[in-house]
Amino acid sequence: MSTIEDAVRSFLGQFVSDPDVEGDHDLFSSGMVNSLFAMQLVLFVEKQYGITVANEDLDYENFKSVNAIVGFIQSKQ
């Protein structure tokens, strides 16, 4: 398991009962997270990895699953 994935799952664990979901499991469409999670995730990514999430990054494919979030972070580093 990569360090980024560990950190993402650890963060996710603060909001969902089962942070060990499949890497491709859709967090939003499955209703696992509430409406506040989207901005909490943005803040987490920005603070943890020192990157800025901006207008051009607003793509559902960047945030929908653990794998997507990890891939997005890697692409911005």
């Binding site: 963060f11 506040l36 901005m39 909490q40 995730l41 803040l43 987490f44 920005e46 603070k47």
Partner: peptide, 8 residues
């Protein structure tokens, strides 16, 4: 600090 817990 831009801490994610700020929202709650």
């Amino acid at each position: 600090r831009g801490d994610p817990s700020l929202i709650m």
